[in-house]
Amino acid sequence: MGTTDSPADATETPVDPDAIRERLDRVNDPELDRSIVELQYIDDIDIDGGSVTVTFVLPTAWCSPAFAWMMATGIRDEVRALPGVTDVTVRLPDHMHGEQITTGVNREQSFESIFEDAEDGIADVRRKLDEKARFARQYDAIRALRDSGLDPDQIVSLTRDDIDLEFRSAAVAVSVRDGVLTVTAPREPLSEYLEKARATGLVTDGTDRLFADRDGSPLDPEPEAFEFSLRDARLAVSNIEGQATICASLHESRNDVTIDEPGD
């Protein structure tokens, strides 16, 4: 535990509360694909020397233990990576499995050892949610490319090497027609998409195709099929946002917070 007044600690880098919040912003609710900071799940951050305790609350007492587990480990790992932090304690009050989850996460135990009768392992759950999130993020990414003038044929054949994320702070460079032409597109939808495309293993090296259908199969450039896949990705967005609406309503009612609607 932290001992703030010990001379040893005084020479360490002090822990910055803003830096913690910024770091926590990288942790997402895996089902809603949105930051737990934005969703107002962070209830309290307590700093005692190098010792940090993060308390988070969820919309209901019965939110999926697997999802809660992912968020708790995310909090632990992100905060621990900050300079000056010597140990992290995660707390989850008012959850039916809060005690089990935080004890397990704080002791670095595995989900499977705590929830022995869970039907899926944590990696399986995460993969399924990542795949849904990837497909939903594809909607904004493809729309951004289309608005930049690319046609379905060009979009479908893009590979990781065709995207230069470092081009400008707000824009990426996209190489089309075998590098004959370079167009720019907004950065955020593409960088966010790529993050999930990497997490799902769809895009691992430079020659991998960027986009895929819901089931991971290559996109069809034929206009009708392409349009259908885009609508399907739109549906994936609506599903996540619809679920987010349910969670936000429950969260606001139980925990007295106000959450901005995504996309508004």
Binding site: R231, S238, G242, E261
Partner: peptide
């Protein structure tokens, strides 16, 4: 049921969901 009350508290989300349902 469950989607309908969006209409009261989150009318834009309700309309969007109806758009999806009417389409699909």
């Amino acid at each position: 049921a469950v989607a309908a009350p969006f209409a009261q508290s989150r009318p834009r989300k309700f309309a969007e969901m109806m758009g999806e349902l009417l389409f699909w």
